[in-house]
């Protein structure tokens, strides 16, 4: 069983990368990976509650996030610094743990694989 960290660093609706990456994370969990997801920089915009992707015919990221616990993806983390800088109030369900930069350093260092360099 590998420790897999999926990193989401871009805004959710500029392209479909975030949705595709979340699908990969779910599959990782189905294959018994120890899956974590880190939202950092503009990726934290994915954590706003009450999004409506269906209005532009896309998957709604906030709904996908709500489904993650069903796939036993429960280790969700966000960069505290990125949230503060953007003055965001993020979703409370599912639970997302805010991490300092030092904590993110430890999270990355302990992984077997890190997936999701984005643009």
């Amino acid at each position: 069983m590998k420790k897999m960290l999926f990193v989401i660093s871009n805004t959710p609706y500029a392209n479909t990368h975030n949705a595709e990456l979340l699908e990969a994370a779910m599959v990782g969990a189905v294959f018994d990976g120890i899956v974590s997801i880190l939202f950092r920089d503009d990726g934290v915009y994915s954590l706003l509650p009450d999004q409506h992707g269906e209005l532009i015919g896309q998957k709604t990221i906030s709904k996908m996030l709500s489904a993650l616990p069903t796939y036993e993806v429960e280790r969700l983390f966000a960069c505290a610094d990125s949230i503060t800088k953007r003055a965001l109030t993020i979703t409370s369900s599912p639970e997302v743990v805010a991490l300092s930069l030092a904590e993110q350093t430890r999270l990355i260092a302990e992984q077997d694989v890190v997936i999701g360099a984005q643009l």
Partner: peptide, 19 residues
């Protein structure tokens, strides 16, 4: 996508080249 994960599980290194 399962084939991505199974490859990752079976190999020593995963290297990604972004967009």
């Amino acid at each position: 996508l399962g084939q991505l994960i199974s490859a990752i599980n079976e190999t020593d290194r995963y290297i990604e080249f972004p967009a």
